[in-house]
Amino acid sequence: MYVNKNLAISDTGFIFNPSTGDSFSTNEVGKFIIDLLKQKKSKEEIISQIVLHFNVDKVNADKDLSDFFAMLKSYQLMLDENE
């Protein structure tokens, strides 16, 4: 899994995908996750980082992350490694 490394994210959570021209808005946790994805972190690593930095348990972090990944994929911001 990876995200386009040219994806521009500003501090305000504004995302611009230069390869499609789409813009998005994300929140603090979303930005945190995308930054980790750009560093090629695995899902497990991301979950443990979220739990480490935010006040949330692992089960909920996992559930929300799966949903977030699904959205990133549907927006074509994230691709599977083998694609």
Binding site: I15, D22, S23, F24, S25, T26, N27, E28, V29, G30, F32, I33, I50, L52, H53, F54, N55, V56, N60, A61, D64, L65, D67, F68, M71, L72, Y75, L77
Partner: peptide, 14 residues
């Protein structure tokens, strides 16, 4: 101290 959590969210700017 941990930051308060809000589930990750992303929305396309239409």
């Amino acid at each position: 101290s941990k930051k308060s959590y809000e589930r990750p969210y992303i929305q396309k700017l239409n």
